[in-house]
Design a protein around this nucleic acid. Structure first.
Lengths: 368, 368
DNA sequence: GCGAATTGTTTGAACGATCAAATCCGCGGT
DNA sequence: ACCGCGGATTTGATCGTTCAAACAATTCGC
């Protein structure tokens, strides 16, 4: 009843009447072995149910076919935590189709994360790492670049002097464009006083998103309606989270406002805002979020989708080349070392929490 | 500029003036090496920055210190998909503290999943697997049990004749108890006609949850108020999802109902119900969900939390023993081969979407 | 038809660790 | 002194694979 030992490459070799190496070649370089032999070996492989032992191969090739990614701590959950989770799904699927696997790890802080990088690298556990949640002057990217560990950041390395630095490859979502799409969409419905609800200045992502709104407003209404002062008046800043957004909007509504619609830098903020305006008796006040989290779908909130599948695809392209099946060394690279993915506005029309349609009609407008 | 080769155990041995094996012992069985030698070796390890090569160790020990888990396809996302994601977080953290890593994989269907199991097992990629989303007569569990692959299911193997079958270890959340807690909580606020909104009969999880409500109603109101017929009348069944729940409740409300509160088998259903009753002008109608997803927190929906961290802990206990640091063979086990985790009701009091407090007071009631 | 190039296959060595058995060492007992 | 004993340390073998070089079998050019 004890498990039978798994067949090794030698068992296959004997069964097929060839040598070890020939079996190995059938698996790794089929084109250099003669057709007849190849078939003979394949039959033996099938007959024995042979599978190469991954660890042995890794030891020999010094490669793991594995990509590591940190799964942040539970605490940081929140509504937006879902973005990382969905990225993870997409990455796992895309990686699988390239013969790669995803390994998770955790770390309490930046230092611990770098320590994990070191362990994973030294133990040859991973061929490359995916870094998320990049911040100004990210020490993790420096460490990885300095130590020659292949990686790609999801999120621009904002602090870096040169975004084109080939040593710091990245993929990011064009937040500015997403917010621009949302703004243009609202303007297309005849709205003019479109506000922006975002985070305090200083976060790369936040500033980028707001810039899309600023650009759209200028483009749409020119300098008369969208002078700096006007835009500043239409901007609301608050910390991330449903509650902060709601409190902030309640205060604003209490004081009276001319706002006609709101574009937000996250679904959390959008949801908080929606709850506040709804409470204040404006059932049709349009709000658009960012991230297209499940929550948005559930409550019918229009939102900008990050196209995480495209992001995952781009990450792998950067790590492995267009069609490669192994991670490339930093010096084997060619072409651009970064990719900006264009997000997509998802328009929803739930009439209960955020009806964005004009006067009861269910007419025109994109929908998914 | 090319990466310096990593130090091996031999380098350390030379530096410390001892043999390979002694270095190995310092790492794996420190107690059998003399104190003085141990320190000498430790110093050498630090000086060289040595880390054991994981693949080499795995090849020799035929062990991978890795647990595999399937990450379902993107499509099945929805609000409840978040449960798996949060479990994954918890599992990763708990596993890390036991020296284990989590490896992800995907599979389109059950057959493909079993094929992946085979690949992972044969390649010695994983020591054990965690199976989620168990269904009646789950072929995956049969395969794993038959092939002697260590695993634990998250979710009871409902179809199995014998839930105590030691060959099919499982961990699950006591859904019945969770729903019971929710029901008792509502009754404690003076409500009597507490309805149940759940899925169609036939799903193990769904039937289990409803049974908790049935038990609580009987216990609370005896046979007079909670005869089978009464309970049936208070039960609403619909497919999973926000929209189905909402439609169903709208229909119910249109026809008039005596319902005073609602306990639901998922947050999605609860959210749909909440939207419907709110729309119908019952801002204080209490609703309680299940799963405690981020959405629930965001909209202030009371919900039953699955205590996924406890689930993760139990999974590892079952796989590795109480304090072990390696996965045990199915025959090394002792004690119960399953664990039922008691969930915890999280009471929220957002007054906007589901105010459950009595007449404006913010008084008694547990909160987290 | 013979050496040279070409193609296909085999052989020894290595990857970096752990296991199992052998060796070394100090010490107490007769 | 000698033997035996037990703990500390070392030595040889091994895990399953791929690399690099050697070897065998064809084909090619003239």
């Amino acid at each position: 009843m004890t498990a039978t030992p798994l067949p090794t490459i030698d068992d296959v070799a004997v069964a097929a009447g060839v040598s070890r190496q020939t079996v190995s070649n059938v698996l790794n370089a089929p084109d250099i072995v003669r057709e007849a032999t190849r078939q003979k070996v394949r039959d033996a492989i099938d007959a024995l149910g042979y599978r190469p032992h991954a660890s042995a191969r890794r030891l020999r090739t010094q490669t793991s076919s594995t990509i590591g990614i940190r799964l942040g701590s539970l605490s940081r959950g929140g509504v937006s935590g879902a973005v990382l989770d969905r990225f993870l799904h997409a990455l796992t699927e895309r990686a699988d189709s390239r013969g790669m696997r995803i390994m998770l790890f955790t770390a309490a802080d930046e230092a611990a994360e770098i320590e994990q990088y070191r362990r994973l690298r030294d133990g040859a556990d991973v061929d490359a790492l995916v870094v998320t949640g990049t911040a100004y002057g990210d020490a993790r990217l420096d460490w990885l670049a300095d130590n020659g560990v292949p990686f790609v950041a999801f999120g621009r390395p904002w602090g870096s002097a040169d975004l084109d630095d080939p040593r710091r490859p990245w993929v990011d979502v064009d937040g500015a464009d997403g917010v621009r799409q949302a703004t243009v969409h609202l303007a297309g419905r005849g709205l003019r006083r479109i506000g922006y609800l975002g985070w305090p200045d200083g976060s790369g992502t936040g500033d980028d998103r707001r810039s899309g709104w600023v650009a759209a407003m200028r483009e749409l209404f020119g300098d008369d309606g969208a002078a700096d002062a006007d835009l500043e008046a239409l901007t609301i800043r608050t910390e991330e989270g449903v509650a902060p957004a709601r409190v902030e909007l309640e205060r604003l509504l209490a004081g009276g406002t001319e706002l006609e619609a709101l574009v937000c830098s996250s679904d959390s903020l959008a949801l908080g805002a929606m709850m506040a305006v709804r409470e204040a008796g404006h059932p049709k006040f349009p709000v658009i979020g960012f991230d297209n989290t499940p929550v948005a779908g559930a409550v019918g909130l229009s939102s900008v989708d990050q196209q995480l599948d495209q992001v995952a695809l781009a990450v792998l392209d950067l790590l492995m080349g267009e069609h490669g099946r192994r991670v490339l060394n930093p010096d084997e690279i060619e072409g651009a070392r970064h990719r900006l993915v264009t997000p997509k506005l998802i328009v929803r029309r739930s009439s209960h929490l955020a009806p964005v349609d004009e006067a009861g009609s269910t007419a025109s407008g994109t929908n998914e």
